[in-house]
């Protein structure tokens, strides 16, 4: 709905500032510890370069938002972190991406093991065609851990879904609403207790109410996990993130800083233009 967006643009600008204040006040007081770090990271799809020399340090127990225009390589960057890019035949990664100082592209790193530490939630809710319970326990089971009812409850509570589904754990995950499905996917991701959760536009397919539930949830998740979230929605980034990275077309990371400074006082003019909606 482009017309609505332009109408509310100015009102949103004010909203962003209040959101940032909110985020600042609730920022968790912990020394920044880097979990994920990219150094000179290049990604190619065949001949086309999708990411150019990206350097970034993602802190632990923080929400890091990744924003930027469509096609700038946000999803590509996310897929680099848990090596889901391995599944794309033409994809080639150069440079370094470390998880707790270990380059995840080293020969000896097992992508399967990596993904057990770094979970992911996708843009489109993709519950398995199984019962709610089986969806939640799937990760634990493939990881060879036995799954108890407590695990199911804990994960569903963690995803703020427990109260809505506790009486229908054996019905299909596909019978839930879109927003519930997405929270089920979050429950599925946190059930095996990873360290990092990657989210690729997790709310883009949801209505505002469902989206705000997920946002609240992210706020809680960050107590236990490190969250990296790709979003198209700048208000959302401002509301929920501690750090913001801005990619621009061509795959360049042009700005990475505390969310407040990125939104209030961006260093790069193009970022200012992008944030204020002049392009993108």
């Amino acid at each position: 709905m482009p017309t609505q967006e332009t109408e509310t643009q100015q009102a949103d600008d004010q909203l962003i500032t209040t959101d940032i204040q909110h985020a600042e006040s609730t920022r968790r007081e912990q020394p920044d510890q880097t979990v994920l770090e990219a150094r000179d990271l290049d990604v190619f799809y065949g001949e086309d370069q999708a990411l150019r020399s990206v350097d970034i340090e993602i802190p632990e127990h923080k929400v890091t938002a990744i924003i930027g225009p469509s096609g700038c390589g946000k999803s590509t960057f996310l897929r680099c972190i848990n090596r889901m890019n391995d599944m794309i035949d033409v994809c080639r990664v150069q440079g370094e991406l470390t998880f707790r100082s270990k380059n995840v592209y080293d020969e000896d790193v097992d992508p399967v093991a990596l993904r057990r530490k770094i979970g992911q939630v996708f843009q489109k809710p993709n519950p398995f065609p199984k019962s709610i319970r089986d969806n939640v326990t799937y990760g634990l089971e493939v990881q060879g851990k036995s799954a108890t009812d407590d695990d199911v409850e804990r994960a569903l509570r963690g995803a703020a879904l427990w109260d809505e589904v506790k009486d229908q754990l054996d019905s299909s995950g596909l019978d839930l609403s879109g927003g519930q499905q997405q929270r089920l996917c979050i429950a599925r991701a946190i059930a095996p207790d990873p360290e990092v959760i990657l989210m690729d536009e997790p709310t883009s397919g949801l209505d505002p109410v469902a989206a705000s539930k997920i946002e609240d949830l992210i706020d809680e998740l960050v107590e236990d996990y490190t969250v990296v979230i790709v979003t198209h929605n700048m208000q959302q980034a401002a509301r929920i993130s501690d750090k913001t990275a801005v990619f621009l077309t061509g795959g360049n990371l042009v700005e990475f800083d505390d969310t407040a400074s990125v939104f209030e006082d961006p260093e790069d003019d193009r970022v200012e233009d992008y944030i204020t909606g002049k392009f993108g």
């Binding site: 848990n82 599944m87 057990r116 530490k117 996708f122 993709n126 799937y138 990760g139 990881q143």
Partner: peptide, 13 residues
Amino acid sequence: DDLRNGAYALGAT
């Protein structure tokens, strides 16, 4: 493929 990716992202072989 969504379903496959969902499982791979959980560390499935």
